[in-house]
Nucleic acid binder design. Structure first.
Lengths: 343, 343
DNA sequence: GTGAAAGCGCTAACAT
DNA sequence: ATGTTAGCGCTTTCAC
């Protein structure tokens, strides 16, 4: 069933039917009602491609998922982000066009989005410090929002980020307040913008209290359980091991937890602070685990905000650059120590 | 840059340029070469919508992500599956069209795929026992492959599944061989086909050795760490607690591990067997954790196979129904007990 | 081997 | 308030 057929049945022109269906004001209400009903009865739904061809819109948002040749891991926050953004998209009739590509082909994927006119806008995931995609998409003139930030030109593009620096500063202060002096940092890859900011926050908190920064207590790498385990283990084997860990993801925290347990440390006194995604269910009960506080990073909410921002930009391209800085939420899971300082 | 412009530059007709670009045989090689080069230089890429409109193909595969109103969790294997399928898709010029919808709207999402002609085929994720989507998609006459199976009409649709029943049977036998008599089952929601099969495997292994099936040792629910923790805790508190656990996902295993640790059990003797996804990095070192063997379920590989199968079906619609049954791989992570029986 | 023209299903400018 | 017509950018007969 297409427009022509439907119009034929109704004894109307395609134009009128189209107008009635798309809410144009100049059609009589009685006609609109009749058209709507017929469309329902015959289960008419427009061909999105033809619609796109005619209007220049595709009603889809592009997300590129790079599969690294090095470390084959899908961005762990991707699913949660999509869940949040997807809510907004479907409320507005948009779909997601996913392009899974080898990371070396990423640029080409965006170019194809552009020239194939297959999307109305894109979201950039996992920005590096100084990310080339910003310049590329600006050049391609395709509306985009960055989930995160890329370096320091923060006023030259649209973004939604969580305050990673402040989160880690706050979390470090919290550990310092508990009396810890040697705090191990298990960070993500520091080529990533978020990891760089996290380290800055960590370092700033230490410096503010004149505690020297020990390179041996800092590790950066992929956020896997394996690396969390290995790096924590290495640090714990040093002559002056850390008494607490600041961890950059759930997986690493689990690895660190294992290393702590292997090293025979008593769980109640070892502390990890983890900043990560929405699932912090493990905090909701008072069990005896070394992770007892976390900075909850609202990934799903970020997804919603990115999507809202992008749709607005698409609808109204000439607005100023916009951005949102979310605060993560410091959560306490058990009470073996004082509550975190709320600032 | 569109076809018309490119043809203009070359002094050829659109037809010839189109034919040259799409590998039709009737164009002279010299011409083809000239066209290809010009296309490259001017960075010509076809408008996919127009192409789709003309050919009837959209070069996209639909995946529907239902967001349950009850339990807001994204299918945990989704990211890994997409990574595998995405490889195949992008090799063949396909993209993924993702529709995130409230689960009650799922049927409508497929209907929109159909009438909007936005996809050439779909993958069904997380099939329930007797899944209505099979009938729906068959009726809509849209090519599809199921990741998993839906009930017992296995010869009436295309599917790629892992042998859940056999995995859990084998894993249970393994625990029995170690001398365990009371084995706790922490299963997924048993409305899901895979969970039902896993329970069958578990039950069959016990029955074969005349071990009664104790309902108190079986739990089914969402595969979260929280539920793994709670159910393991409950079982461990019983008068005759389990001496081993069979766990249906990584998250639940982590929860169970915590419950075991809380209960003060010695780690070396408590056993969990987990069947889950690709990331089993935690097994690669011999640390002292209660999870020491796992059935590795090749999600990414399943993604590849589903994608390959679907593309073949799309290319050749009149083939017989096809299916692939993958075996999970039983892995041993530490050697506190005998190696698993390989059968 | 190449080109002209029709058409895919829709929207939008221009009538009436 | 409704209809006519001309595209959107591509593929695909049909002609030469």
């Amino acid at each position: 069933m297409n427009l022509k057929e439907l119009a034929g049945i109704l004894g109307l022109s395609q134009t009128t039917v189209s107008r009635a269906l798309n809410g144009y004001p100049e059609v009589r209400e009685a006609t609109r009602k009749r058209v709507m009903e017929a469309a329902n009865i015959h289960n008419y739904k427009p061909d999105m491609r033809a619609k796109g061809l005619a209007t220049g819109r595709s009603m889809a948002i592009g997300h590129v998922v790079p599969l690294s040749t090095q470390h084959e891991m899908v961005n762990p926050v991707f699913a949660d982000f999509i869940a949040g953004a997807g809510e907004i998209y479907s409320d507005n009739g948009y779909d997601i066009l996913l392009s899974v590509v080898a990371d070396v082909d990423e640029e080409n994927a965006y170019r194809k989005f552009r020239s194939g006119r297959s999307v109305d806008g894109v979201i950039i995931h996992g920005p590096h410090a100084e990310d080339p995609r910003i310049a590329l998409l600006t050049e391609l003139n395709i509306p985009f929002v960055v989930h995160g930030r890329a370096g320091d030109n923060e006023d030259r593009y649209n973004w939604v980020d969580v305050n990673n620096r402040h989160s880690f500063l706050r979390a470090t202060e919290f550990l310092l307040d508990l009396g810890h002096k040697r705090i191990g940092l298990l960070n993500g890859l520091e080529s990533m913008d978020f990891a760089r900011r996290r380290r800055e926050g960590y370092a700033a908190a230490l410096l503010a209290r004149d505690i020297p920064i020990d390179p041996d207590l800092m590790a950066a790498g992929e956020m896997t359980e394996e690396l969390g385990f290995r790096n924590a283990k290495r640090m714990l084997a040093e002559s002056a091991p850390p008494t607490a860990f600041l961890v950059s993801s759930m997986s690493m925290a689990i690895g660190a937890r294992r290393a702590i347990s292997d090293a025979g440390k008593t769980l109640g006194r070892d502390v990890s602070v983890v900043i990560h995604d929405d699932d912090l269910s493990y905090l909701k009960n008072g069990s005896n685990i070394p992770i007892f506080t976390a900075a909850r990073s609202p990934v799903r909410q970020a997804g919603r905000l990115c999507a809202e921002m992008l749709l607005e930009i698409i609808a109204n391209p000439d607005t100023e650059y916009r951005n949102v800085l979310l605060e993560s939420e410091l959560m306490v899971g058990m009470s073996t120590g004082p509550a975190p300082k709320q600032d």
